[in-house]
């Protein structure tokens, strides 16, 4: 316990430093607002995103429809807003289980090593031998297209990356005096792993998680675009771009607006990740 408290004052000063960075502020603002949109899209979207209006098909932007209407007469603005719910959910659900599983497995094999670690090592080698998208698409093909299956696929492949990172960190931390001290004092393995090693080892994993959320949105919308992720009529940015792609010369706003939303949100997560990396980086 003492070790973690000892490092706190240092963090505080770095926190102050980080807070003053424009990148951090911008990133936090973007993600904050995106979360708001994701939680309460109904407050911001003027129309039902799935309501088909045969009489208002393919309209250009106007006061009534700021981003125009799509080829089924649905309000494009409302669809981009409602997509925040799905895309932000993607950022969380496609990564959080990988994070939990990866951290647990990584910590255990890093602590106990032995045969389990060797098997784990070969398994990791095998998984990272596949290009990420190839394996995810193959798993989605097995499970069938759709959001839930996409989360499962990304989790099945993605946890390995977290576990690898966590294992390396745990092994690094084991070299520290306090780990040895814990062993000497006869603490249970569980206590040493989860109360001593993990809190110290987890920071790079958290930083990676931030960037991974940005990647999850990109990956999810790619799959949506290919027809393997979110399914129409669900409003998701990749699906929206796919729907609007045929009209890039005549109604460019249909694909540009969801494109901007992807870039902005990705930017938000990346900036936050960078700021956190600075904030949490061990002294060296």
């Amino acid at each position: 316990m003492t070790e973690t408290t000892l490092s706190l004052p240092k963090s505080r000063s770095r926190l102050g430093l980080a807070l003053r960075r424009p990148g951090f502020l911008l990133g936090a603002a973007i993600i904050g607002f995106s979360t708001l949109l994701a939680l309460f899209p109904g407050l911001f979207a003027p129309y039902d995103p799935n309501f088909i209006d045969y009489t208002a098909v393919g309209q250009p932007p106007s006061a009534a429809h700021p981003f125009g209407t799509d080829m089924l007469g649905r309000d494009a603005f409302s669809r981009v807003i409602w997509a925040y719910r799905i895309n932000m959910q993607m950022a969380i659900l496609a990564t959080v289980f990988a994070l939990v599983i990866g951290v647990t497995v990584g910590a255990l094999v890093g602590y106990y090593r032995g045969v389990a670690d060797m098997i784990f090592g070969r398994f990791v080698d095998a998984i990272i031998t596949f290009p990420f998208l190839v394996l995810v698409i193959a798993v989605v093909a097995v499970l069938g297209p759709g959001l839930i299956n996409m989360y499962i696929a990304i989790t099945l492949v993605g946890w390995v990356y977290y576990a690898r990172l966590m294992r390396a960190e745990i092994i690094g931390q084991m070299g520290n005096d306090y780990a040895a001290a814990g062993l000497v004092m006869g603490y249970s393995d569980r206590r040493i792993i989860f109360r001593h090693l993990l809190p110290n080892a987890i920071t790079p994993v958290i930083v990676y998680w931030m960037t991974d959320m940005a990647l999850a949105i990109l990956l999810g919308s790619s799959l949506g675009y290919l027809g393997l992720g979110a399914q129409p009529p669900q409003a998701e940015w990749g699906v929206l771009i796919a729907e609007g792609r045929n009209f890039i010369t005549t109604a460019w706003w249909l694909s540009l607006m969801p494109g901007i939303a992807i870039v902005l949100t990705g930017l938000g997560f990346s900036l936050l990740g960078d700021a956190m990396a600075d904030l949490l980086r061990p002294r060296g």
């Binding site: 089924l72 069938g144 297209p145 290919l226 027809g227 393997l228 399914q231 129409p232 009529p233 796919a242």
Partner: peptide, 10 residues
């Protein structure tokens, strides 16, 4: 899955 036409029909 992935068919925009089918999604519209539905």
């Amino acid at each position: 899955a992935g068919s925009a036409d089918d999604a519209t029909i539905f």
